[in-house]
């Protein structure tokens, strides 16, 4: 079952930028690309825990601000020679509102 919850307006996130949503399981980074696609990933680089929400967003990727690891926003997979996976969460845009799947976050928080 999916329970979409409204976490804010698209305009609250700059294009090619991110904002953080606090959850019980830690921070989730919600990214907005240059084409207004929205992706939600754990705000923690698997390398040294860098805040991905502070990274530079390019195409459908983000570069961690600490050591320049690059991750796919779609899959959470580290790009290039680096290896690592960032948990991703369902996210979508309805009108100008951003929705996250609460059950996903809840299930994880329940686990």
């Amino acid at each position: 079952m999916t329970t979409w919850i409204d976490i804010g307006s698209l305009e609250d996130i700059p294009q090619r930028g991110a904002r953080v949503v606090k959850t019980a399981m830690g921070c989730v980074a919600v990214f907005r690309t240059a084409r207004d696609e929205v992706f939600a990933l754990s705000d923690r680089c698997p390398h040294k825990g860098g805040p991905l929400s502070e990274g530079i967003v390019h195409g459908k990727s983000v570069t961690c601000p600490l050591h320049n690891w690059v991750f796919s926003l779609e899959t959470g997979q580290a790009q290039g020679a680096d290896e690592g996976l960032v948990p991703t969460y369902p996210a979508r845009v309805e009108g100008s509102r951003i929705l996250l799947d609460a059950t996903q976050l809840a299930r994880r928080s329940a686990a």
């Binding site: 804010g8 609250d12 019980a24």
Partner: peptide, 14 residues
């Protein structure tokens, strides 16, 4: 200023 705080805090809702 708004950019520096979380977009949402789901812990409060939980």
């Amino acid at each position: 200023r708004a950019r520096y705080v979380p977009l949402a805090n789901l812990m409060l809702e939980a």
